[in-house]
């Protein structure tokens, strides 16, 4: 599991890679929530290099979206591989989260 953060203008980019599952979900959750607690309110999670996600990983995105919503923030996720997109669809997450094809549309989504 890899996690990389970058801040550009007023957007925080989180790039996740490898496997996101019950072994490392807690670490990723803490790191993302820490950024929100610091006051960042526009977050893009880039899943281009994410190979695998389980329900333990998916629940983090719901949690982060809820926290951001409470402080009028915006979350978008982008670059989902086909099986990961399928998992989002099965969960109903594509209807409640902003899921974008690429980084440009993710940027537009969080700047709304």
């Amino acid at each position: 599991m890899g996690m990389q953060f970058e801040q550009l203008d007023e957007i925080v980019y989180a790039r996740l890679s490898g496997r996101l599952d019950s072994n490392n979900a807690a670490v990723v959750e803490q790191a993302l929530l820490a950024r929100i607690q610091e006051g960042h309110s526009r977050l893009i999670i880039d899943l281009k290099d994410l190979e695998y996600i389980s329900s333990a990983g998916l629940r983090i995105f719901l949690l982060v979206a809820k926290k951001l919503r409470q402080q009028q923030g915006q979350l978008s996720l982008c670059n989902l591989s086909r099986p990961i997109k399928q998992v989002f669809e099965i969960s109903g997450f594509t209807a409640i989260l902003k899921v974008c094809d690429d980084i440009d549309s993710a940027r537009a989504a969080v700047m709304q």
């Binding site: 333990a56 998916l58 809820k66 969960s91």
Partner: peptide, 13 residues
């Protein structure tokens, strides 16, 4: 989103 329970997805998958 606001009312969605966190969890319960594993068996559904």
């Amino acid at each position: 989103l606001e009312q969605r329970r966190i969890g319960g997805l594993g068996i559904h998958f």
